[in-house]
Design a binder for these strands. Structure first.
Lengths: 195, 195
DNA sequence: GTCTATAATCAGATAGAC
DNA sequence: GTCTATCTGATTATAGAC
């Protein structure tokens, strides 16, 4: 193999991230070696260290960036005034956002245990912030009388688990269209919260 | 350390399984070494190979036994005649069974990707059998007019995801009692299926 | 049944050539 | 910016002593 020359940092950097995301989602962080990532990018293992100080930071950045983008994207969409409308928007947003980013979502859920303590705490805080977005909606609906829920925190966890589960079975060209999936999930959530 | 003598196969075998379960649930299959498992049991790494032909089989047996016991335990409880009663029994069974076996459940969901192809297929079949147990209930309730669901397969996946999610937050001495958790989840499921 | 020792391989990360 | 070469240490699994 001929040696590569010239500057590619603006190309290779994103490629490293993309390859790491794909491989870690498929095989797990601990099961993927730096050599595998390098091979997928088309460079040698040593070259990866130009783009990340170490393997742990690579994982942490993938998870942090995913959750931060999730939060900012939701912040842009959370405009509805009424609890029912806001809950519907949240359901459809959550489903679409997760369907579109299966690898990031999978990693953010599955690789918590491979984070070092400080990184773990930071990611847990971001995830908690997102859960609070839904709980705030449920509490507002409770106050307004739109929802009937004995425990808003349990309902928050139940709804997020239900919606995120879409990634375990949904396929883009499958039996159900994206719009149909959105609508069915929303109907189940709507009924579950007593709206 | 003095060398151990005498026969302990009936003691050590289950200890190996138990240690492997605990460690794999905590750190992930790929991240746990045979030496760590051996150390947790109190033997040397080489001795583990008296109880498993290799690391892969150890994982497979943990997952297979968990799912087989899940299926047989449910088969013993599935007595209710009416769809609503059967669904209630299923919800409470699923929640309790999962709360009681967090490690096995976690491994069965998270370590699919570390199974070799044949083992993966076998575990997937068992998981599918369990999902079919719930779908059968939903289809019966649909036919009898007790449930109103646009898609029974989606509802099956949604309900299982929602109920299994209890393991991500439930704590035995937490704010909510087990009976209360069972009842709240059942109420959300009952409303979600339109009963 | 368990140990020690070892084979063969692979890991993450770094140094220095180009 | 990337490569090659290398360091250091860990990995699964086996062989043979006891």
């Amino acid at each position: 193999m001929a040696r590569k020359t010239g500057s590619h940092s603006e190309i290779t950097g994103p490629l490293v991230r993309a390859a790491a995301q794909r491989l870690i989602a498929a095989h797990g962080f601990a099961a993927v070696s730096m050599r595998q990532i390098a091979s997928a990018v088309g460079v040698q293992a040593g070259a990866l260290y130009l783009y990340t100080p170490d393997k742990q930071t690579l994982l942490f950045n993938i998870m942090r960036d995913h959750l931060q983008e999730l939060l900012t994207t939701w912040a842009d969409q959370a405009q509805h005034e009424h609890p029912i409308g806001r809950l519907e928007t949240f359901c459809k947003f959550h489903i679409n956002y997760h369907i579109d980013r299966p690898d990031e979502v999978f990693i953010a859920y599955m690789e918590m245990r491979n984070l070092e303590p400080d990184n773990f705490a930071a990611i847990e805080t971001l995830r908690h912030e997102y859960e609070d977005q839904l709980e705030t909606i449920l509490l507002a609906g409770q106050s307004s009388g739109d929802f009937k829920l004995p425990d808003s925190r349990l309902a928050t966890m139940a709804i997020i688990a239900m919606l995120t589960g879409v990634n375990t079975w949904y396929q883009e060209d499958g039996r159900l269209s994206r719009q149909r999936v959105e609508r069915i999930y929303w109907n189940m959530v709507r009924r579950a919260v007593g709206a």
